[in-house]
């Protein structure tokens, strides 16, 4: 992974990742109110590279770096996964097969 542009904006290159992570991460980073812009791109389909660009609003430059927004995005996505796991387990435990309960795992 490599970083470009110091300051309020940066691009990160993540090797071995694709749209699976790219789009979800982009979305979650954009949810951060301090982030002005976040976009990702896979420049060439036969190169396993995913570039993600983050720009922070100037008023937050003092205390938030693009790196922090990226790390927060990754953490938020992990929290979202935890939440989904929880929601799924709940749904699964409440699910009753109509007329049959042999499929309960």
């Amino acid at each position: 992974m490599t970083v470009r542009h110091p300051g309020g904006s940066a691009s990160f290159e993540i090797l071995g990742e694709d749209h699976t992570l790219g789009n979800a991460l982009r979305y979650i980073i954009m949810k951060n109110p301090e982030v002005e812009f976040c976009g990702y791109s896979i420049p060439h389909p036969s190169e396993e590279k995913m570039n993600i660009r983050i720009q922070i609003y100037p008023e937050y430059w003092e205390h938030t770096k693009p790196y922090d927004a990226l790390m927060k995005g990754l953490d938020d996505l992990a929290d979202l996964c935890d939440h989904i796991t929880h929601a799924f387990k709940e749904a699964r435990d409440n699910f009753v097969e109509p007329g049959d309960n042999s499929e309960q795992r």
Binding site: V3, T20, K65, P66, Y67, M71, L74, L77
Partner: peptide, 26 residues
Amino acid sequence: LQEKLAAVIETFSNKNETGDGFGDGV
């Protein structure tokens, strides 16, 4: 999906000794 995230977090944390995200790889 979480393992992916963990792997990326770990790689960035290892690279980022200066604390601002601009470690050796700038």
